[in-house]
Design a protein around this nucleic acid. Structure first.
Lengths: 230, 230
DNA sequence: GTCACATTATGACTGTCAGTCATTCACAAC
DNA sequence: GTTGTGAATGACTGACAGTCATAATGTGAC
């Protein structure tokens, strides 16, 4: 029946409208200051209606995180589809992450908040939170596959377990991203200013560092001879 | 005057008593569920009194984070005082961090929360938050000095900038720690279960990976010949 | 057109809690 | 004992998340 189809679409639209409004309000004043009343007003709906779509303010904020991670994963997918070596894929995935976060710091804040809600039960059964987890799983699997590609094409040392390596690379990339993000917002990390560190080059340095460890012995040798030539 | 001295001591004791109480309450039910009323009751004080010592619930939670980072830094200092190579210092500092977080996941949650409060103004001028920042600065400087030691004793490649390298190592260690922590709490990272990843070995793998990049060329060569012998 | 039914929206209402402030208390100084 | 000062109190306020009885809207049948 077409009516039913239309209703589903309308429901989806309303859902999106609420998330849009929530983004505007929360991104502009922060999750703590934002009120459901204001979000409802911004979405041209009543407060009660918000609760037909979201269990709580936290779940609504999680929906924003979900949206951010959707976008991010789309970018990963695009990178992954490009034709390059495994090692190069790893580099590009990391860069994509970093770029995404500097372009969308507010989404990253949503990620952080979502993660700091570790044991809030209301999210345990949330379908929206489950979507975030699914995105995490997918992102990680891009990483694993990139490593496997690299091990096949000889750009990555195949003595590692690709899944373990993926987690190591992913979490350290995440750490660097976090620092880069935090440098940009709030009252944190004056240390970095004092040290006059260019956060933009952190990830490059990281790659430089792990690159040596990742590379196959041949590649490492080659690089060494190259640098001696220079 | 001894009276004044005693008063200062008493004030400090009361401060600690409140933080003790706050830890008991917040660690057991989480920051969102904990109420100032209950913390006050636990500290055998009235709610109003709490506000003579802390500007807000967030600042009180920050005081807990502060306490955690004090302890952590003491451990770093102990490690740093031990007599070993620069590379070994780096390894031990990372391990210390990891151990601290698995022994004190609640403190790490406080760190995470503190960080997710990036642009909440009330903390911008807080002396307690400033203490957290100072601890960060100190921790990072341990890292820098360990690297400098390693560059002197020949265990670490001195073509890096020690400050930049410190940040890279530190933030990636942080990332790994975060994942390790999150694996343990809440509804997150079922991926890791699915993948049957041992988070305990993540940091070792990380060291294995960056170790190669960190090491001087000689050390790298030596390691290679060693492994060929085997 | 209208009736019955279902689905969705509404906003007044409730309970809770962070944070305040006028008042009380404790104690030191003289 | 009196006075003065700074700390402690808890009743109070305002604000907000989340609920729920009621209203509105839409749909499909006849």
């Amino acid at each position: 029946m077409s009516t039913e189809e239309r209703k589903r679409r309308e429901k989806q639209q309303r859902y999106n409208r609420i998330v849009d409004a929530a983004e505007r309000v929360i991104f502009s004043k922060g999750i703590e200051q934002a009120t459901m009343q204001e979000i409802a007003h911004e979405a041209e709906l009543s407060k009660g209606t918000l609760y037909l779509y979201f269990r709580s303010k936290n779940e609504l904020y999680t929906a924003i995180a979900r949206r951010g991670s959707d976008t991010l994963n789309q970018r990963f997918a695009k990178v992954f589809a490009s034709d390059c070596s495994g090692l190069e894929l790893i580099r590009r995935i990391g860069e994509t992450y970093l770029d995404f976060v500097s372009e969308n710091p507010e989404y990253f804040k949503a990620f952080m908040y979502y993660e700091s809600m570790s044991e809030v039960d209301e999210l345990r059964e949330s379908e929206i939170a489950a979507g975030c987890e699914e995105n995490r799983r997918e992102a990680l699997s891009f990483m694993v596959r990139a490593l496997q590609i690299g091990m096949q094409d000889g750009t990555i040392d195949d003595s590692f377990d690709p899944r373990e390596l993926a987690i190591v690379l992913w979490s350290s990339t995440r750490g660097i991203t976090t620092i880069t993000h935090m440098k940009g917002v709030g009252h944190y990390f004056k240390v970095l200013d004092e040290m006059e560190i260019q956060v933009s080059s952190l990830f490059e340095n990281f790659l430089d560092l792990v690159g040596t460890g990742l590379a196959t012995e041949e590649a490492r040798m080659k690089k060494m001879t190259d640098s001696q030539k220079m």
